[in-house]
C-alpha cells in the first residue's frame, strides 16, 4: 500500500510539473495574449483594459495557481478564436480519441502476444523468419502511410468503408466503431511488430537464464517451462513497453485522424495551433499529458502487483 501511495504522490508531482511547464511555455513565451486577442484593433488603452479584464496584470504564480485551480474544477478557459468554453469544444472529441486508443491497444495485445509466443517457441523455423522479415518491414511504415494504404486497400479496392465518410457516434454507434477499426489498425500496425520483436527476444533471453535450467531439471517439458516459468518473467518488460506505447498511440492518433478525416482531438489541436488559439492548445496538451502520466502510473502499479521484487522494496 505504501508503494501505491508513493506512486500516486509522484504522479501528482509530475502532473503539476507538466501543467507548470505548459503554462510557462504558453503564457510567457508567446507574448501578450490581450494583444493577440485584439489583433489589428489593438490600441494601448484597449489592450490595458483587456489585460485587466483577463487578469494579466497579476503576478505570474498567482495566474498559474488560478489557472490550475479552475482547470482542475473543469473550467479550461475560453477559446480566443471561437469565444466558446474550451471544455465544450473538447467534450465531444474526447470519446473519439479514447475509442481509437483503446481499440489500438486491444488490437496490439490481441495480435502481438500470440505471435510473440509462437515465434519464440518456434525460434529459427521458416514461419519465425517470415514473421521476422514482415515485422521489420511493418516497423518501417509510418502510421499515416499505413492509413493511406489501408484506405487504398479496404476503402477503394475492397470497398469495406467509405474513405472520409466518418460516421459520428451520435448517428450510429455500430457504424462509428466499424469506421474506427481502420484508423486503429493503422496506428496499431507498427506497434504490433515492435511488441512481437520485444516479446520474442525477451522470451528467448529468459529461456537462457539459470532458472529455466532448474525448471528443466525438475522434469518440466518445453511447454511447461515456457508457460509456467518464462512467460511471466518475459511479460514484465512488455507491460512497461505497452505503457510507453500509449504515448505513441496518442501521437499516432493525431496524424491518423487527419488521414481518415476524423474530427477528433488531433484536428482541433492542429487548427488551434495554426490559429494561435493558446487556451485550446494548452488544454489539449495538458489533457493528453495527464492521460499519458495516469496510464503509465497505472501500468507501474500493475507491474509492481505482478513483480514481487518491487512489491517488497516499497514495503520494507
Amino acid at each position: 500500500m505504501k508503494y501505491v501511495g508513493k506512486k500516486i504522490i509522484t504522479m501528482c508531482l509530475t502532473l503539476i510539473l507538466v501543467s507548470f511547464l505548459v503554462f510557462l511555455c504558453f503564457t510567457v513565451i508567446p507574448g501578450d495574449p490581450a494583444l493577440a486577442k485584439l489583433g489589428t484593433e489593438a490600441t494601448p488603452e484597449r489592450v490595458e483594459a483587456l489585460r485587466k479584464e483577463m487578469g494579466l496584470d497579476r503576478p505570474f504564480m498567482v495566474r498559474y495557481g488560478d489557472w490550475l485551480y479552475s482547470f482542475v474544477k473543469g473550467d479550461m478557459g475560453e477559446s480566443y478564436s471561437y469565444g466558446l468554453p474550451v471544455k465544450e469544444m473538447l467534450a465531444d472529441k474526447v470519446p473519439i480519441t479514447v475509442t481509437m486508443s483503446v481499440m489500438s491497444i486491444l488490437i496490439i495485445v490481441a495480435v502481438s502476444i500470440p505471435l510473440g509466443l509462437y515465434t519464440a517457441k518456434h525460434e529459427g523455423s521458416v514461419t519465425d523468419r517470415v514473421i521476422y522479415a514482415l515485422n521489420q518491414v511493418v516497423m518501417a511504415v509510418p502510421a499515416f502511410f499505413a492509413g493511406i494504404l489501408i484506405t487504398l486497400l479496404f476503402g477503394i479496392v475492397l470497398k469495406l468503408f467509405t474513405p472520409g465518410g466518418y460516421i459520428s457516434y451520435n448517428q450510429s454507434v455500430a457504424g462509428f466503431l466499424g469506421y474506427m477499426i481502420f484508423p486503429s489498425i493503422a496506428i496499431a500496425l507498427p506497434k504490433i511488430s515492435m511488441t512481437v520483436k520485444l516479446l520474442r527476444s525477451g522470451l528467448i533471453g529468459e529461456k537462457k537464464l539459470d532458472y529455466t535450467r532448474t525448471a528443466y531439471s525438475r522434469g518440466n517439458n518445453t511447454k511447461g517451462v515456457l508457460y509456467k516459468h518464462v512467460l511471466k518473467n518475459a511479460m514484465l518488460p512488455i507491460i512497461t513497453f505497452l505503457g510507453m506505447t500509449f504515448t505513441d498511440i496518442i501521437a499516432g492518433s493525431i496524424i491518423v485522424e487527419q488521414v481518415f478525416g476524423i474530427p477528433g482531438m488531433g484536428r482541433i489541436l492542429l487548427t488551434s495551433i495554426s490559429n494561435r488559439d493558446y487556451p485550446v492548445v494548452m488544454a489539449i496538451i495538458v489533457c493528453l499529458a495527464a492521460a499519458v502520466i495516469i496510464i503509465n502510473g497505472l501500468v507501474d502499479l500493475v507491474y509492481q502487483w505482478i513483480d514481487p521484487r518491487i512489491r517488497l522494496e516499497g514495503e520494507s
Partner: peptide
C-alpha cells in the same frame, strides 16, 4: 525529463 517524456515527441 520524466515530465517531458509524458508528451509524445511529435506533440
Amino acid at each position: 525529463i520524466d515530465a517531458l517524456f509524458a508528451f509524445p515527441s511529435i506533440l
